[in-house]
């Protein structure tokens, strides 16, 4: 005999809601989903709320990478060392490229580890959204965290490479000066450059299939435009500022200066800093503009 049809139980409650002023209903705590505007802002609070997710995505990539490969962590060591061996032979011995008075292997090793980080991070970031399509279509998270997170795992490899660098420097008897304290700043700058390029490419990759094919070529060109196997000092005068438009120039020169005591990067580094920052900022803006369509496209 109990009559528990819901509408009979709650008439007063529902009337209460209707009477409640709109203002209160829209108070703090409401999360809104509206059509994207022309310029969507970055929401720092949102990014912060999802920081754990970014870390875990990075951690997952790292774990998976090391679990699936036979040599695991060893790759972080083998890859730059093999590069050093080849470049030392080709450019150091055969072509006799100068190295700012530093032993060529050491000179090229620093360039190599910066380079390997960049190419790995950019590659991962570019594919971060297309690879995570299962996530993108099933849950919400600030999409930009995917390319951001892609820049993190490479830092672990970089750290491992630093240990080898220590051995190298001891072998050549090079003691880092006080400038070494600035090295983390250059790593940070490196991560910014990688993230900037990664964010651009990730957004483009969702929309244009070409990106996947253009990427290896792009990365290759970038390698030869950067002072990895040769010193910036080969570029003279005003041309150096043009050369420094490549944000990696400031990073690599700075890292060599900080760790090995190579000539300081000078004012050209500011040009690199400016273009690096511009790359990241425009990347974020572009990403936000196309972000809301990702779930419909990926």
């Amino acid at each position: 005999m109990s009559r528990t049809t819901p509408e009979r139980v709650q008439p007063d409650a529902s009337r209460g809601v209707l009477v409640r002023p709109r203002k209160k209903a829209r108070g703090v705590g409401w999360i809104e989903n509206r059509p994207p505007g022309r310029i969507a802002g970055v929401h720092p609070r949102d990014l912060w709320a999802y920081r754990d997710l970014a870390l875990f995505l990075a951690l997952r990539d790292l774990q998976v990478r090391y679990k699936q490969t036979i040599f695991g962590v060893a790759w972080a060591v083998i890859q730059p060392l093999a590069g050093v061996a080849i470049f030392t032979f080709v450019f150091g011995r055969l072509v006799n490229v100068p190295s700012d008075g530093l032993p060529y292997p050491l000179f090229v090793y620093v360039g190599m580890i910066v380079w390997i980080y960049l190419s790995t991070a950019v590659n991962e970031a570019a594919q971060s959204l297309t690879e995570k399509s299962a996530l993108v279509t099933k849950i919400y998270f600030p999409r930009i965290l995917a390319p951001f997170a892609a820049a993190l795992p490479g830092l672990v490899d970089l750290g491992i490479s630093m240990v080898i660098l220590g051995g190298f420097m001891a072998f050549y008897g090079i003691v880092p000066g006080v400038s070494a304290l600035l090295f983390p700043a250059f790593v940070f700058a490196l991560a910014l450059v990688a993230t900037g390029a990664g964010v651009w490419l990730a957004a483009l990759n969702v929309q244009y299939r070409d990106v996947r094919y253009a990427l290896p070529f792009l990365v290759q060109v970038w390698l030869f435009l950067s002072p990895v196997v040769y010193p910036t000092s080969l570029v003279d005068g005003a041309a150096r500022y043009v050369f420094a438009l490549n944000p990696l120039v400031g990073v690599i020169d700075g890292a060599r200066w900080a760790l090995l005591g190579a000539p300081p990067p000078g004012a050209a580094a500011l040009v690199s800093l400016a273009t690096g920052t511009a790359l990241l900022v425009t990347g974020i803006v572009y990403f936000q503009r196309v972000e809301r369509r990702f779930a419909d496209v990926v």
């Binding site: 705590g29 409401w30 809104e32 849950i139 919400y140």
Partner: peptide, 21 residues
């Protein structure tokens, strides 16, 4: 749209509290 996975073309949806998707 409730979970913010995709945005509406027009109109708005609002949720209050954590959403478990």
């Amino acid at each position: 749209i409730l979970c913010r996975i995709t945005a509406p073309t027009s109109g708005a949806s609002r949720t209050r509290g954590r959403v478990g998707p």
